[in-house]
Design a protein around this nucleic acid. Structure first.
Lengths: 337, 337
DNA sequence: CCATGCTATGTTAGCGCTCACAAGCTGTCG
DNA sequence: CGACAGCTTGTGAGCGCTAACATAGCATGG
């Protein structure tokens, strides 16, 4: 009567029986409760191994009221920044023993956001990481009463949520200051699309650094993250020769720009210095190798999860800012006399 | 004594009480059991709305032994194909009422795969979708005894797992046949990296189509998906003038190739016809607009989930192949006399 | 008119785990 | 030597839900 055909997976009681202890002791071993003697612990662990026992997450969740799951709400999953952040967040969460549930948005509207958050609540996620690089999404989020810890990545939200971000403005300043230290005074900027938070902040950083040095921040070219727009900007720049250096909002555009310059016979860095942003793996192999700003996505992801866990542990809602880092290569040099 | 400070979320019994029925009737309403009278159903639904009741997933999972979760094992999450597939799979799963847990691999080794599968098993996922574009990963998977339905995306695995894929070979054949129909006989190929399954199959498709038409398949240039490699190939091609048409393994490389050709004074399509692969959103705006092969990721994702659900429902392990589609634009034309 | 079946609802028993508490066993100290 | 603390282990209840069965109500047909 006990012997059904299907060998049902072992449960805690099976382990307990095999180890000659109570199920509760098994539970204690699993939860690293210190009050278990070494010998008992070992016997239990052996029994667990023998039976290939796996704790039933549902049962555990039911009583602890924790799902051990973090929801990640993401848009633009294919872009360099977001996809790397996603990867890092996911990794950090997994490392911390959490499951990662994902809701990717094809387009970001009040409706789709609502739907995704609902999905997460149904799943009873313990926390939500928001990965929406466009402004405005946050307003929608603010309206929602979620009732679950949330960390917004990449945006300096007020005190409504936790937030983790790379200091884009600082990154831009590092780039521009590096150029200024080399003696450049006419420093242009090729920006990212205006409806991206990061693009905006990089532009602001560029502007700020120049202004506070008493330099003009006039030469602003609009880009869209794509190499093509970098190429076009490069051609313009080659023609006008108004700047001796340019800060490009990402490496991909810098690639296009470098090519345009090469074609136009403008030498980098001799005639024009170029700084990128992102430090993609390829950037060290551009011609010339690109001076750029590195964002540490691993750290961002880790911090983000840390923040969330702290909130989960009853801690304060908090914010962290990860500092980017300038990687100097050969695309920058003092301006020609 | 019942009134603790924290307003604990409503449970089924609360809904039942408010609606004046038993909790089981509430359950029936939630599960769309037909044996509930319309009036009762309505009262229950009202009560649910009033209390903002959400069913406890953990409790449900505990008894049904289903987690309503699908695990997606992914690598190369940042590339065009994989990221779009991921997005589509995720969307289809969510649509079908499943939660999507993700495990992204930074590098694909026996160890990392093992670890990720373990993670999923611990979470008791109902099924796993495998999104690993490199060959070899499948061998590792085959060794593992997972005990959970699995669908492999993008690879023609034997009968070990279900599989859903876009017919890359057919896509390549469509491209090459289109060129042949226009009268081209010297058709080159710029391939993707050899350690990608898709790249391989596109190359095979190109080779096969040429061979079966009695044409030579000699002009094979190695690429790496990046625009840069397309650019280099374009320069080579411009110099040698060995082909009147070229099939490029993705649009990104086609972009670089087009630029190289433009710089070299080679007109597309007059002097050289170009076909890409992917139909990225930008491709319609290349100069000239690119003839390319479109993969329907939405359908792929949907099929993939369908397959998995069928397996979950006790159905057969099955395979589906989604047909790609040639999108003819202005980068192809009959060869000059 | 009652046996039969069908529909709508209620009752009961767990799913596998953790939490709170009880209980046994040492050792220590007044 | 008994009271008590501290450690290890066991017992029982219950988390919120669904599945299986029980029951009541109502129509159908011999």
């Amino acid at each position: 009567m006990n012997d059904t055909g299907t060998p049902r997976p072992p449960v805690m009681a099976d382990v307990a029986k095999l180890a000659g202890v109570s199920h509760q002791t098994v539970s204690r071993v699993l939860n690293n409760n210190p009050n278990v003697s070494a010998s008992t612990r070992q016997r239990v662990e052996e029994a667990i191994a023998t039976l290939a026992y796996r704790r039933n997450t549902a049962a555990r969740s039911l009583v602890t009221r924790r799902s051990q799951t973090i929801g990640v709400l993401a848009a633009e999953m294919a872009s360099y920044g977001p996809s790397n952040t996603l990867l890092a967040v996911q990794h950090a969460a997994r490392e911390a023993g959490y499951f990662v549930s994902i809701a990717g948005l094809r387009d970001v509207t009040r409706e789709t956001i609502n739907e995704a958050v609902d999905h997460f609540l149904e799943q009873a996620v313990d926390g939500i990481v928001v990965l929406l690089p466009h402004p405005g999404a946050l307003d929608t989020l603010r309206e929602l009463v979620v009732g679950v810890p949330m960390v917004v990545v990449g945006a300096a939200v007020g005190d409504a949520f936790g937030s983790a971000r790379v200091d884009q403005r600082l990154g831009a300043e590092l780039a521009v200051r590096h150029l200024m230290e080399q003696g450049h005074t006419r420093i242009g900027h090729l920006s990212g699309p205006r409806d991206w938070i990061d693009a905006d902040e990089r532009t602001e950083g560029w502007r700020g650094a120049l202004k506070s040095a008493g330099l003009s921040a006039e030469l602003l070219l609009p880009g869209d993250w794509g190499s093509e727009s970098g190429y076009r900007a490069g051609l313009q720049l080659a023609e006008r020769r108004t700047a001796t250096a340019i800060f490009v909002a990402n490496d991909q555009m810098a690639l296009g720009l470098l090519r345009a310059l090469a074609e136009s016979g403008i030498r980098v860095p001799d005639d024009l210095s170029v700084v990128g942003f992102d430090d993609q793996p390829e950037s060290a192999y551009f011609l010339p190798p690109l001076t750029t700003v590195r964002q540490n996505f691993q750290e961002l992801g880790m911090r983000c999860i840390q923040l969330l866990l702290r909130q989960l542990g009853g801690g304060e809602r908090d914010s962290v800012v990860v500092s980017p880092e300038l990687v100097v290569r050969q695309s920058t040099a003092p301006p020609a006399e």
